[in-house]
Amino acid sequence: MTGGYYSIEQVFHVKAGDFASAGEASSQIKKILKQLGIDSTLVRRVSIAAYEAEMNLVIHSVGGELKLKVTPQSIVVTAEDKGPGIPDIDLAMQEGYSTAPEIARELGFGAGMGLPNIKRCADRLNIQSKVGEGTLLEIYFDIKAR
Protein backbone atom coordinates (compact mmCIF):
# COMPACT_ATOMS: atom_id res chain seq x y z
CA MET A 1 0.00 0.00 0.00
CA THR A 2 1.22 3.48 -0.73
CA GLY A 3 0.94 6.53 1.45
CA GLY A 4 -0.21 4.85 4.68
CA TYR A 5 -3.69 5.93 5.75
CA TYR A 6 -6.45 6.50 3.28
CA SER A 7 -10.17 6.14 2.98
CA ILE A 8 -12.00 6.28 -0.30
CA GLU A 9 -15.65 5.97 -1.25
CA GLN A 10 -16.87 5.90 -4.83
CA VAL A 11 -20.37 5.31 -6.20
CA PHE A 12 -21.10 3.99 -9.69
CA HIS A 13 -24.58 4.05 -11.21
CA VAL A 14 -25.42 0.92 -13.19
CA LYS A 15 -28.25 0.86 -15.71
CA ALA A 16 -30.43 -2.19 -16.19
CA GLY A 17 -30.00 -3.94 -19.52
CA ASP A 18 -27.06 -1.75 -20.56
CA PHE A 19 -24.77 -4.52 -21.78
CA ALA A 20 -22.72 -2.03 -23.83
CA SER A 21 -21.52 -0.28 -20.64
CA ALA A 22 -21.45 -3.40 -18.47
CA GLY A 23 -18.08 -3.83 -16.79
CA GLU A 24 -17.15 -0.14 -16.74
CA ALA A 25 -17.75 0.30 -13.00
CA SER A 26 -15.75 -2.80 -12.05
CA SER A 27 -12.94 -1.67 -14.38
CA GLN A 28 -12.85 1.67 -12.57
CA ILE A 29 -12.74 -0.14 -9.22
CA LYS A 30 -9.78 -2.21 -10.42
CA LYS A 31 -7.99 0.94 -11.58
CA ILE A 32 -8.56 2.72 -8.24
CA LEU A 33 -7.27 -0.26 -6.24
CA LYS A 34 -4.15 -0.52 -8.42
CA GLN A 35 -3.49 3.22 -7.95
CA LEU A 36 -3.73 2.72 -4.18
CA GLY A 37 -1.06 0.04 -4.37
CA ILE A 38 -3.32 -2.75 -3.16
CA ASP A 39 -1.81 -6.24 -3.51
CA SER A 40 -2.48 -7.59 -7.04
CA THR A 41 -4.00 -10.85 -5.78
CA LEU A 42 -6.52 -8.90 -3.71
CA VAL A 43 -7.20 -6.51 -6.62
CA ARG A 44 -8.03 -9.53 -8.78
CA ARG A 45 -10.46 -11.00 -6.20
CA VAL A 46 -12.21 -7.65 -5.69
CA SER A 47 -12.39 -7.03 -9.46
CA ILE A 48 -14.00 -10.41 -10.15
CA ALA A 49 -16.57 -9.95 -7.37
CA ALA A 50 -17.33 -6.36 -8.45
CA TYR A 51 -17.79 -7.47 -12.07
CA GLU A 52 -20.17 -10.27 -11.09
CA ALA A 53 -22.16 -7.89 -8.86
CA GLU A 54 -22.26 -5.28 -11.64
CA MET A 55 -23.50 -7.86 -14.15
CA ASN A 56 -26.22 -8.93 -11.72
CA LEU A 57 -27.38 -5.30 -11.58
CA VAL A 58 -27.41 -5.12 -15.40
CA ILE A 59 -29.16 -8.48 -15.89
CA HIS A 60 -31.56 -8.83 -12.98
CA SER A 61 -32.47 -5.38 -11.62
CA VAL A 62 -34.08 -2.19 -12.80
CA GLY A 63 -30.70 -0.54 -12.19
CA GLY A 64 -28.79 0.28 -9.08
CA GLU A 65 -25.52 1.34 -7.53
CA LEU A 66 -22.18 -0.31 -7.13
CA LYS A 67 -20.20 1.27 -4.29
CA LEU A 68 -16.55 0.95 -3.37
CA LYS A 69 -15.27 1.77 0.11
CA VAL A 70 -11.59 1.38 0.92
CA THR A 71 -10.07 1.85 4.37
CA PRO A 72 -6.62 0.81 5.62
CA GLN A 73 -8.18 -2.42 6.98
CA SER A 74 -10.72 -3.42 4.36
CA ILE A 75 -12.36 -3.08 0.98
CA VAL A 76 -16.14 -3.25 0.78
CA VAL A 77 -18.05 -3.50 -2.50
CA THR A 78 -21.78 -2.93 -2.17
CA ALA A 79 -24.37 -3.58 -4.87
CA GLU A 80 -27.84 -2.24 -4.19
CA ASP A 81 -30.82 -2.27 -6.47
CA LYS A 82 -34.53 -1.80 -6.68
CA GLY A 83 -35.75 -4.82 -8.50
CA PRO A 84 -37.47 -8.14 -8.32
CA GLY A 85 -35.45 -9.38 -5.35
CA ILE A 86 -34.18 -12.91 -4.84
CA PRO A 87 -36.97 -15.31 -3.76
CA ASP A 88 -34.59 -18.07 -2.58
CA ILE A 89 -31.05 -16.94 -1.70
CA ASP A 90 -29.85 -20.50 -0.97
CA LEU A 91 -30.98 -21.60 -4.42
CA ALA A 92 -29.42 -18.51 -6.04
CA MET A 93 -26.10 -19.42 -4.39
CA GLN A 94 -26.00 -22.80 -6.18
CA GLU A 95 -23.65 -22.96 -9.15
CA GLY A 96 -25.59 -23.13 -12.41
CA TYR A 97 -28.88 -21.79 -11.06
CA SER A 98 -29.96 -18.78 -13.10
CA THR A 99 -33.02 -16.62 -13.65
CA ALA A 100 -31.33 -14.60 -16.40
CA PRO A 101 -33.54 -13.63 -19.34
CA GLU A 102 -32.89 -15.00 -22.83
CA ILE A 103 -31.21 -11.77 -24.02
CA ALA A 104 -28.52 -12.12 -21.33
CA ARG A 105 -27.97 -15.78 -22.22
CA GLU A 106 -27.66 -14.96 -25.92
CA LEU A 107 -24.87 -12.52 -25.01
CA GLY A 108 -23.04 -15.20 -23.03
CA PHE A 109 -24.16 -14.15 -19.55
CA GLY A 110 -26.52 -15.76 -17.05
CA ALA A 111 -24.70 -19.05 -16.47
CA GLY A 112 -25.60 -19.01 -12.79
CA MET A 113 -22.06 -18.43 -11.55
CA GLY A 114 -22.35 -14.79 -10.36
CA LEU A 115 -23.18 -15.21 -6.67
CA PRO A 116 -21.04 -18.37 -6.25
CA ASN A 117 -18.05 -16.53 -7.80
CA ILE A 118 -18.63 -13.54 -5.52
CA LYS A 119 -18.72 -15.81 -2.46
CA ARG A 120 -15.53 -17.58 -3.58
CA CYS A 121 -13.65 -14.28 -3.94
CA ALA A 122 -14.91 -12.56 -0.78
CA ASP A 123 -13.69 -12.86 2.80
CA ARG A 124 -17.29 -12.27 3.90
CA LEU A 125 -20.58 -11.84 2.05
CA ASN A 126 -23.91 -10.47 3.21
CA ILE A 127 -27.04 -10.70 1.05
CA GLN A 128 -30.35 -9.12 1.97
CA SER A 129 -33.23 -9.33 -0.47
CA LYS A 130 -36.96 -8.72 -0.43
CA VAL A 131 -39.10 -9.93 -3.30
CA GLY A 132 -40.60 -6.97 -5.14
CA GLU A 133 -38.31 -4.45 -3.40
CA GLY A 134 -34.69 -5.20 -4.22
CA THR A 135 -31.39 -6.62 -3.11
CA LEU A 136 -28.42 -5.45 -1.06
CA LEU A 137 -25.16 -7.30 -1.54
CA GLU A 138 -22.21 -6.44 0.73
CA ILE A 139 -18.88 -8.00 -0.22
CA TYR A 140 -16.04 -7.69 2.29
CA PHE A 141 -12.29 -8.09 1.73
CA ASP A 142 -9.68 -7.87 4.46
CA ILE A 143 -6.47 -5.97 3.77
CA LYS A 144 -3.63 -7.88 5.37
CA ALA A 145 -0.77 -5.85 6.82
CA ARG A 146 2.38 -6.29 4.79
Rank of each mutant, 00 (worst) to 15 (best):
G3H: 05
G4C: 07
Y6M: 14
S7M: 14
I8A: 02
F12E: 09
F12G: 02
H13P: 02
V14N: 00
V14I: 13
A16D: 02
D18N: 13
D18R: 11
D18I: 12
D18L: 10
F19M: 02
A20T: 11
A20H: 11
A20P: 01
G23I: 08
E24V: 11
A25V: 09
A25C: 13
S26N: 07
Q28S: 13
Q28L: 15
Q28R: 15
K30S: 14
K30H: 08
K30E: 15
K31G: 01
K31D: 06
I32R: 02
I32D: 01
I32G: 00
L33N: 01
K34W: 03
G37D: 08
D39I: 03
S40C: 00
R45F: 01
V46M: 07
I48F: 10
A50M: 06
A50K: 03
A50E: 07
Y51L: 14
Y51R: 08
A53M: 08
A53F: 06
A53I: 09
A53Y: 06
M55R: 00
N56W: 04
L57Y: 03
L57F: 07
V58M: 03
I59M: 12
H60L: 13
S61A: 15
G63I: 01
G64M: 08
L66D: 05
K67C: 05
V70I: 11
T71R: 11
T71Q: 08
Q73T: 10
I75E: 01
V77H: 01
D81L: 12
D81V: 08
G83K: 02
G85A: 07
G85S: 08
I86G: 00
I86P: 00
D88I: 06
I89R: 08
A92Q: 09
A92D: 12
M93W: 04
M93D: 03
Q94W: 07
Q94K: 14
Q94V: 12
S98D: 05
S98W: 03
A100N: 05
P101K: 11
P101N: 07
E102V: 12
A104C: 10
G108T: 11
G110D: 11
G110S: 08
G110R: 08
A111I: 02
A111C: 10
G112H: 04
G112L: 09
M113T: 10
G114C: 13
L115W: 09
L115C: 11
P116L: 09
N117F: 10
N117V: 07
I118V: 12
K119Q: 15
R120M: 06
R120K: 14
D123P: 02
R124S: 13
N126T: 15
N126R: 12
S129G: 07
S129W: 04
S129L: 10
S129F: 05
V131T: 13
E133K: 14
E133H: 12
E133A: 07
T135G: 03
L137Q: 01
E138F: 04
I139D: 02
I139N: 04
Y140I: 09
D142S: 13
I143K: 14
I143H: 05
I143V: 14
K144W: 02
